[in-house]
């Protein structure tokens, strides 16, 4: 690892932004998978990309565009569809369709489009870093409060209802937080890399975790290690960051599956 390069502001800011993304997204992913709504990650990432492109075309800040569109979609989904992946599948294809149409009709957005879909982390600036740091702080505080409620609602739905608690309110709050996190992550690392950071580390954690707390640690560790490896490879080999991160996570998933198969084989 070339640590000297990390202290060069040109790399330090993107590296730190991505590190925060890699630490936060798997935590959100654990609760999305708990609710069997992991498709939300791809939906919000696609919508954030569409919002960012729309904002760029209108001459508005792209971060605001991404956050705004994904936030509105989260609120609309919570109002229209109670739970499950159906609502997110519709949002995902809507985001993809809108993005492709904007790219086809507004050549000026082409550069941003490439960054959003390829995941060009090295172009992120201080605004991305501070936004992600603020989000990580708020998410950490909110999840401490929300975690028990989301788990209780999933494991004991009748108990939850009998205590007079409102699942809709907690779901909306969580959905808005996921939408915000995915919008900020997409602006830094791109659509597919953001989705992969939500989906793959949690998949591995669900296989290997001995408890919820243990699984949260596994998901975060897998995510951060895969991120650091991908950052170094992309930097040294001069490759687009997003695909390298996705492939490093796929390698981690393959190792996880292989070890699981070996361990279950040795027990059997």
């Amino acid at each position: 690892m070339n640590w000297t390069a990390m202290f060069d502001p040109m790399f330090f800011i993107p590296f730190s932004t991505g590190l925060l993304v890699a630490a936060v997204l798997p935590i959100l992913g654990m609760y999305l998978r708990l609710r069997e709504e992991w498709l939300a990650a791809l939906a919000f990432a696609q919508l954030a990309a569409a919002g960012s492109l729309g904002a760029a075309i209108l001459g508005l800040p792209v971060l605001i565009g991404g956050l705004g569109v994904s936030g509105i979609a989260a609120a609309a989904k919570a109002w229209l569809v109670r739970s499950g992946n159906n609502g997110y599948a519709i949002l995902m294809v809507a985001g993809w369709g809108a993005s492709i149409l904007m790219l086809a009709n507004a050549p000026l957005a082409d550069h941003l489009g490439h960054a959003l879909f390829d995941g060009q982390l090295y172009f992120t600036g201080l605004s991305n870093l501070w936004s992600m740091a603020a989000f990580a702080l708020v998410a950490a505080m909110l999840m401490r409060w929300l975690s028990g409620k989301l788990l209780l609602e999933r494991m004991f739905p009748d108990f939850f209802r009998a205590r007079g608690l409102s699942a809709t309110r907690f779901h909306l709050l969580f959905d808005l937080m996921v939408a915000g996190g995915l919008a900020l992550a997409t602006a830094s690392i791109g659509v597919m890399a953001a989705f992969a950071l939500v989906f793959i580390p949690t998949m591995i954690a669900y296989q290997w975790g001995r408890s919820w707390r243990h699984s949260l640690v596994i998901a975060t560790l897998v995510s951060v290690v895969a991120y650091v490896v991908a950052f170094e490879i992309a930097l040294v080999e001069d490759q687009p960051f997003g695909p390298v991160l996705v492939l490093s996570l796929v390698v981690a998933a393959s190792i996880g599956w292989s070890l699981k198969k070996l361990s279950s084989g040795s027990r059997g």
Binding site: L151, M155, D158, R161, W212
Partner: peptide
């Protein structure tokens, strides 16, 4: 204050939760 339990689907067992949790 009321608690209410009915049998949950066994698919919930895939969630990585310990008995203590």
């Amino acid at each position: 204050r009321v608690s209410h339990q009915h049998q949950n689907p066994l698919s919930l067992r895939d969630i990585p939760l310990s008995g203590r949790e």
